[in-house]
Amino acid sequence: MTNDVLVFGEIRNGELKKVTKELIGAARLITEGTGGNVDAILIGKDAGSAAEQISDFGLRTITVAGDGILDNYSTEGYAKVFSEVVKAGSPAYVLLGATAMGRDLGPRVTARVDGVMFSDCVDLRFEEGRCVVKRPVYSGKLFIEIAPEGEWTTFISIRPNNLPPAGPSGGAAEIVQRPAGVTAESIRAIATEIIALSGGRPDITEAEIIIAGGRAIKGASNFRIINELADLLGGAVGASRAAVDAGYADQAIQVGQTGKVVNPKLYIACGISGAIQHLAGMRTSRVIVAINKDPNAPIFEKSNFGIVGDLFEVVPMLTGEIKTML
């Protein structure tokens, strides 16, 4: 095993996902300790042009696998190239985003190279010759610090929005083209289409600002006031499970233990009581604001700012107020 770190860069709609730069930042932190190099791998359509976006980030090589067969995501197709690059380079650490793709691909490739993987990490440091990562357990009710033990290639998936992104640091990465090396026949499960559900807003797992509505919204059409504030701030819309179950919002935007875990810089909870399962999904938000008419609602205990009032009065007022400010 070498001292190197391999970063799996993720591409969406031709753009490199922001988390990729956060992964490069984390990789630098590790190689400061190991003294190794950072390499990256980009798979799929637009891998070549995405590589240009990080070509001056101090990477040694960027492996680009952009064959047509990899245009659509498949665990098997991606895992084949990815695991071969891992085997050939023998990095000590492999970093992925804790995204839908990273969470699907990571454990499969880990199994193929017989390594170890830590999912959903929120922080990491290099200490006593190995990387120590921090990750939530019990759906975010606790954290553990965990480290690899022994000579295993260590895969780490890191949650978006947690670590500072790296910037350019000079040098030109060597671009290495790599054939997919898979036949269509050998791929038994493949994505055929992507169906957008977020109505043009940023996805809640990636959004910097989330305005969320709860049962108190009392109807799908009333989400309009939440949407207006979200759109004004370029944010996403979230919902409690009660709002989803009542049919006011789509399951795709449910925040919480059985929904999405989100980590924005601002989370505004409107008419949400703050049940433990809801908190599990949003408590790591940097600033939490609660708007609730019940001064004893538990959400206030977890919030940075609170207003006791009727959301139907407060939310539109806040939208108006911010409009005059921006």
Binding site: K141, F143, E145, I146, A147, P148, R283, F305, I307
Partner: peptide
């Protein structure tokens, strides 16, 4: 085989006091 070791269990950081805006 043993592949990892948990070094520490950590409670959630205590949230900041809520500032009620009135």
């Amino acid at each position: 085989g043993t592949r990892s070791r948990v070094l520490k269990w950590l409670p959630l950081p205590k949230g900041a006091e809520c500032r009620m805006v009135e």
